[in-house]
Computed example of a mutant assay.
Amino acid sequence: MKKTLQVNIGGRPFIIDEDAYLTLRQYLDEVGIRLDGSESSEVMEDIETRIADLFQETLSSRIQVVNLDAVRHAIAILGSAKEFGEPIRQTTPDSVGEQQPPSPTVKKRFYRSRYDRMLGGVCGGIARYYDLDPLLVRIITLVLGVFTGLAILPYIILWIVAPMEPRQITEGTDLKDQ
């Protein structure tokens, strides 16, 4: 079961997975800080319209929710945020005038993945912790487990000991369970 959100992208309504929404929001924020203030709203509207067109092509009668793969596909077509240039401003459009210093006590913590999981979420959690592709972590775990047997016991221990990733609710959006 995944949480979904109702969003308007380029003036069109979509239902999107929470993890896909967070990825898309981060991408749009990164693009936004790289645009010149005089043209940024017009360019952002054009980018959102193009993303909406790409999502519309992806959706069918069988698939009605925009998922993380559709967002990654759209980002791959549009290009990474770095291709829009160097950051012009340090704040995101949502926090104009409220620049806050980064928190010095933020610790990185390992969780089993709630959304990117096949068996127990351990490989998805490892991938998120080290910022790797989950498929790569699964393949390495499978190879180590099958050929050497070294991955089976640590996997089971992490499955039992590691906490599940906490649920995060984005304020100002409508959440629906699917």
Rank of each mutant, 00 (worst) to 15 (best):
Q90D: 10
D131R: 15
E165H: 07
G120F: 15
G10K: 05
G125K: 06
H73L: 06
D53N: 08
T4F: 04
E165A: 09
D19G: 01
I156G: 00
G37Q: 11
Y130I: 11
S41A: 13
A70E: 10
P163D: 15
Q100D: 03
E86W: 03
A151Q: 06
D174L: 12
F84K: 06
T105L: 10
D46Q: 11
T170V: 15
S80M: 06
E57S: 07
D131C: 04
H73I: 07
I157Q: 05
L158Y: 12
T23F: 00
S38Q: 09
V122G: 05
S61H: 13
P134Y: 08
I126R: 02
Y130L: 15
A162C: 08
E42S: 11
L68W: 01
I77W: 02
F14D: 09
I75M: 12
D133E: 14
G172Q: 11
V43N: 04
S60W: 03
E42C: 01
S41C: 01
Y155R: 06
Q99A: 13
D177K: 04
I33P: 00
I169G: 02
D19H: 12
L22K: 08
D46V: 04
F147P: 00
R25G: 00
L78F: 11
H73R: 14
I51S: 02
Y27A: 03
K176R: 09
L142W: 08
E165S: 06
I9C: 07
A127T: 05
L5V: 10
I33K: 14
V65W: 02
A74T: 05
F55N: 05
R62I: 12
P102R: 02
F110L: 15
V146C: 02
I160H: 04
A70F: 06
Q90R: 11
P87S: 04
G10D: 10
V106Y: 00
R12Q: 14
I88R: 10
S80A: 10
Q100K: 11
T49R: 12
R34P: 11
L78P: 09
L142V: 04
I160M: 05
L59P: 05
E45M: 08
P101A: 02
R34G: 07
Q64K: 14
E30A: 13
F55Y: 08
C123P: 01
P166Y: 03
R89C: 05
D36K: 11
V71K: 04
W159C: 12
Q26S: 13
L5I: 13
L119S: 07
T92K: 05
G120H: 14
I9F: 01
G145Q: 07
V122F: 09
L22A: 07
L22V: 08
R12A: 09
G32E: 07
